[in-house]
Design a protein around this nucleic acid. Sequence first.
DNA 1: CGCGAGCTTGACGTTGTTCAACTAGAGTGG
DNA 2: CCACTCTAGTTGAACAACGTCAAGCTCGCG
Lengths: 229, 229
Amino acid sequence: MRISKNIDCKNCELKCDIYTASIEIDEDPVKLKPTYAYYSKNEYISKQGTNVSHAIFLINGSAKIFIEGLNNKNIILYLMTPNTYIGLLSFFETPYYLYSVKAMEDTTICMVEIEVLKSLYLKNHDFLLKLNKAFGKSVAQILNKIITLNQKHIRGRIADSLLYLSQIYGSDYFEMKLSRKELGELSGVSEENAVRLLTEFKNDNIIDVKGRKINIKDRHLLTQISNLG
Amino acid sequence: MRISKNIDCKNCELKCDIYTASIEIDEDPVKLKPTYAYYSKNEYISKQGTNVSHAIFLINGSAKIFIEGLNNKNIILYLMTPNTYIGLLSFFETPYYLYSVKAMEDTTICMVEIEVLKSLYLKNHDFLLKLNKAFGKSVAQILNKIITLNQKHIRGRIADSLLYLSQIYGSDYFEMKLSRKELGELSGVSEENAVRLLTEFKNDNIIDVKGRKINIKDRHLLTQISNLG
DNA sequence: CGCGAGCTTGACGTTGTTCAACTAGAGTGG
DNA sequence: CCACTCTAGTTGAACAACGTCAAGCTCGCG
């Protein structure tokens, strides 16, 4: 991990909500003291159980948010792509992280101290609303995951994940940055069964698989499998 | 369901955060236009998918918060007892309820319009912090449930629920307001297996069961079962 | 060329749901 | 006051779904 302090927001291609809010209330973004941090693949960005001190915004690369469960088994809650908050679920006054975040490739993030952020959202209502909206979205995803894990068969769970990935990558054809094991963790399924279902879907002509490149050929059917469970 | 409008907070034995906040900023609580609603057992207090228009506070009685899943199978996220918010997870700008709430006995709630609440927390920082803290607690419970559902055996899941119930009712001896089916829904287990495990725990001298009255005799062992999964 | 990580496949055993039958107790009407 | 019915709870047995173990494969890289 490498750090560079006091980033100048003017040079940041990503005009994030924090920056916008700060401009709107006529405050110099320098006051935010934004800090970039660069992580390599598989490095921890934040670790379950440690203190939450900063709001974290993903600039480029990608990361997985996961809970570290029993017997070293993880569940990936969802993935982070540029222009989203890390730690959204925790930054409102939860003293420590309820989950871990790891970079899935070389990844740059921007940190702003919680205290700075707080003073900002208390001055700017719109910003608070934006935060809350993003927050609500995360919670919705998680509730959905509860149903999936408890009530869908592994077929439906993997179908869910594939649809989710295609949405993340914005296309029916994508190269996922997940190993088979991670695809399993995202779906709450063992690695072996993740593999089995990929080949099954391939044989059924629903998808094409080449390594980590996936092509969804029959989105309709895949959606049906996901819905039926 | 019966309603009485324009409650006078002075007569309410429960001095909730909303009331406190309103006093702190020197605003007459009458402006909150608090409304009581009385529900009988098993009535819906809010229904998954409908609009969120009010913040809801439980005055007395109890309620279950659950997701309505596939094939009419529900998962109870957690229970509500007096002096807690209903709909906490939704009231920040989520357009509709992500879950349902049903009264588990005759229950009184107090409603305040979302818009009123919003104007309040924008004026009073402490109140916002309190809301967020409660919010974080709910999310923590839910993340915990994900691990439980996916990684623990039914033995551990039921143990979890029993410990949770004893915490809710504040004693090792309690009468739960849940049917066996609901205990199953709280634990992500079928009704039959919920029954089986109660008798198993009883035979192992870990608990006493008489109808819906539970007595935890060996909390230590029960905790161990919960931790080991 | 050989090694290792990631991937794949088969066989097997455990876990937990489901179906079905039965019991106990509460409420109802003759 | 006794059948009856209805609901909640209980128990057993069969079956399907998944995870686990073990072995083999592939491909990139030293």
